[in-house]
Simulated assay, not measured.
Amino acid sequence: MRGGVGLVASVAAVFGLGVPASPGWTAVAVAANTVWVAIFVAVSVTRGLLPWLMAGEVALTCVLCLTQGDLVAAGMLSGGVSWVAGLVTMTIVTTGFAWRPGLAVPVGAAVALCHLAGARMAEAGDGGTVTAGIHVVQILAVAGLMTVLRRAARLADDTLTAATDEQAAAEVLRERRSAQREQNRVWHDTALNVFTAIDQGGLRRGDLRLRNQAAHALVELNLTGRPGEAPAEAKLDARLRVVVELADLTVHTHLVPCAVPWAVAEAFAGAVAEALTNVARYSGVREAGIDMAISDDGEVLVEVVDHGRGFDPGAVPAHRYGLRESIKGRMTSVDGLAEITSRPGRTAVLLSWPASAKARP
């Protein structure tokens, strides 16, 4: 804005040249103003309204005001229509942007007084009073406007900061709850399952499966809360084979090569392990099947099926952790899905990971 007004003022000074203005002094003033405009624009755009830049702006405008008798035609000295008066207005506005009212108002007033003094020395028709009145109104208006804008900006900053803090706190709380849920799932699916199997007589001292399941439980518990130690990617088919080896069942599998993010592989593995544990405990059969596929759009599908007595998924109490968290909650945590259907003779747990996160064969 200062650049545009400054260039217009230089053009107006040249084309509005008239008695008693001096062509020589006007040429010097126009050259000085034009060079200063270039400096002002370059510095303000790259480094802002620095103190020395504003001091130079005020000093140049005051000099032009005091010498306006040699720069402005007689008919343009009154009424605030001269090119020098225009520069005074621009300086008032600029100081209002750069400084607080406590400094901008007295500096603006000093510039206005310089213009008034220059107009009287040049014997302006109205003695410079009309233009001085205009400048006073401009000083007060700019100070008032900038005060309102600064207060609004401060209020907006405070509101944004508060909202950001609330969002950060909510995110921390969400992550803590998510970590707590995952820790509960791991405890449920590892140590608790091993202890339950021992208590029910499914695993006995010296049983190799007891040793393997206990070792696996220790590994899972050690990884809990330390995701940085886990690999970025895992082979899902290999991870599911480990789950099958630890199962207290005969499991028939159809697995295909598939690499997914480590967290996704762990979610599938944990959900499948819980599904197989439920088969062993409640179905009344000792066999299950796992079928794995990748759809054309990249969705990973894993289905665990048994042909036992079945159950009503809707009748499972809300406090039971296995279906709600160890299967459904775990898949939801990685943007996956778990669908459970059951009737006498067939129970199926279908796990899927959306195509929005592509799997790689």
Rank of each mutant, 00 (worst) to 15 (best):
R100S: 12
I198L: 15
D157T: 06
L149F: 10
L192Q: 05
A124I: 06
G96V: 15
A124R: 15
A179W: 08
L103Y: 14
D199H: 06
A168M: 13
E166A: 04
G125F: 00
L192A: 07
Q183A: 11
V136D: 12
V107K: 05
G125N: 03
I134K: 11
I198E: 10
A163W: 06
L155V: 12
A156Q: 10
A141K: 00
A153L: 08
G206D: 13
R154S: 08
Q138L: 13
V142T: 10
I198V: 12
G96I: 10
A124P: 08
D157F: 04
T161P: 00
A168R: 14
A156K: 15
W99I: 05
G133P: 03
W187R: 07
A156E: 15
D126P: 04
G133M: 14
I198S: 10
H115V: 07
G96K: 14
A124Q: 07
A152Q: 14
G128H: 01
V186P: 04
G128S: 05
L203Y: 05
G118M: 02
V172G: 12
R174W: 12
R151K: 06
A104G: 03
Q183V: 01
H135M: 14
G125W: 03
A141V: 08
R151V: 01
L173T: 12
V194E: 03
T147G: 07
E182F: 11
V137F: 14
Q167E: 14
L149Q: 06
G118V: 08
G128V: 04
P101M: 06
I92M: 00
